[in-house]
Amino acid sequence: MNATSRKDTTPILHAERLSKQVISGERRLTILSDLAISVFPGETVAILGQSGAGKSTLLGLLAGLDLPTGGELEMFGHRLADLDEDGRARLRAGRVGFVFQNFQLLPTLTALENVLLPLELSPRSDSEQRAREWLTRVGLGERLDHLPKQLSGGEQQRVALARAFVTGAELVFADEPTGNLDPDTGERIIDALFSLNREAGTTLVLVTHDHALARRCDRCLRLEHGRLAEMHLDEVSA
């Protein structure tokens, strides 16, 4: 999928002149500056960058988890600046999924319960059945009642994948999804992620420093010195 196949010209995520500064001691640090991005429905977009480039900060802003210090940001056509914290939460509910580097599974919840967690916030009659189905799709149909500590890293990340897609999210953010996994396991997780994404027709915004992973996306953007630059897929070395 690429820009030419965008069926809808309204971006699902749109940012202009986005900037983020933080105060560190007495110094003002600029992490993001005059940044622009548009993500269209169904796209898969990778944001590449070195450690400390501000990838996670950008992800936090794009997902409405944090507020920029300047610029405009829209998600699903809503200006995030117009919404308070609760308003932004409501906007995410059921429409946005997340996959984290450290999985972020709750240790006292079983695999099934972890997947059910976002469904608790989006009333559905078939929550549990849905959660079971998604866990089965990621190959954990037999491990529903296992606690995270009884699962391997790869299995934990698969639970997290099921959790990200179970609500029928339109937009999934993934923050270094293979960062805590060995290369082979990471590869399998990525396969699963893209496969699920394809099946669900979800928009995926992926933050990584793994070029191999980035190359599987429709578009690649490099975050450098606080700005985003479009990369040609050929530029992304393996």
Partner: peptide
């Protein structure tokens, strides 16, 4: 705190 943060992430309001 982590549960609360995750729930916020998934769209729970402060009141909820």
């Amino acid at each position: 705190l982590d549960t609360a943060a995750l729930l916020r992430c998934f769209g729970a309001t402060q009141g909820e």
